[in-house]
Design a protein around this nucleic acid. Sequence first.
DNA 1: TCGATATGTGACTAGTGGTCAGACGTTTTG
DNA 2: CAAAACGTCTGACCACTAGTCACATATCGA
Lengths: 210, 210
Amino acid sequence: MGLLERREKEKDSRRMLILKSARTLFFAKGFKNVTVDKIARFSELGKGSIYLYFNSKEEIYAQILLHDIDKFHRQARSLLNKKKTATELLFEFAYLYVDFFLNDPELFRILMAFMLHTDQMNLSEEQYKKVIADMRRSIDIINNIFQSGIDSHEFPSGIDIKYKQFALWGMLNGIIALHIFSGSESKRKEKIRSTVKSTLQVYINGLKQG
Amino acid sequence: MGLLERREKEKDSRRMLILKSARTLFFAKGFKNVTVDKIARFSELGKGSIYLYFNSKEEIYAQILLHDIDKFHRQARSLLNKKKTATELLFEFAYLYVDFFLNDPELFRILMAFMLHTDQMNLSEEQYKKVIADMRRSIDIINNIFQSGIDSHEFPSGIDIKYKQFALWGMLNGIIALHIFSGSESKRKEKIRSTVKSTLQVYINGLKQG
DNA sequence: TCGATATGTGACTAGTGGTCAGACGTTTTG
DNA sequence: CAAAACGTCTGACCACTAGTCACATATCGA
């Protein structure tokens, strides 16, 4: 059935077109200041058509997050191939993460909106679970790094990896939020790197102590 | 002029009444699901009256945050009077902070909404600065604790307090967000305490190492 | 060619934040 | 005491927007 297949592909490319338009608009003006009608016009579609591909404005927002988490995950995975110490890998992961999610603050806003407002965002249970699963998958990379550090006796074997990975992830999110809050746009990237470096260094020193 | 004074007081008590109503509703249903009209009805006022005391729905939201930050600050200040080591004080501050802002997740949502959406929240410059200043004031308590730790040689003198206090605050926020995201309502409080304990312990160990 | 199916549309509905002309009550003034 | 001035309150009203749906158009199989 080549036809159905082509249809699927076309449908998918429409979806991607809408997502791309929405992304541009959201990142330029923020969620509240973008109307579904604007997304439609920008995609050269009627408003009704948007709702053929998505069930709500919020769903579009969430889908952007899903798409980007996937992109991040691929980049983060590739870190593991590098021949580096676990400490170095943790730093690289941390830098990658903060750069990725701070690169455009709106992306981080979506992540936070999702984390904090899950119950109020009209998403299907399915979609909700998918975001969680995808996010977990990326956080698990921290887990892998920790484990390799233990295997190589870089970290003491007693540490409770499961907790530590989430704590570290939380730390990174907190630092990003902090810099969006207080940092001026221009110097943000350098400043956050130095905060991450200093914080992570202290944390890892503490970890190594056991 | 006893009359003007009484008027001022009455006006202020109306403001507080509205804030209290709004708080109840926001905390029960979340920002998006509460209408200004509902706040008005709950306060036994007409909708127009709300706008005599506040300029926008968002301003009400922000004022709740301001009110609670103040409450937190008073509690946190009183910690400093205790005769404890800096390490102990850091733990107490951290517990107080996460308990306070997680006690009702909506409060943390307001904080985050404010941190992340400042540009999109129609607040006056004045109000915005007030929130920053008030928040800073509370974070400075961490600074005081660090300083006392250095003075008592509990921490090495070389550490860069300014950075560390913000990093620590960011960490706490990240951990709260993490638990709102993934924790089930019931066990949240115990779980977050143990995460905070473990994370902070590691961090402080690292700090002490210099 | 014709019917069926998939895709697209924008006028319309329902609901919301915010405004404002006028009502009402209280104080001041002549 | 009358009435003007002031402060407070109000809900009908406006502007805007997420989401719907009856209808239009395009594509395809028979």
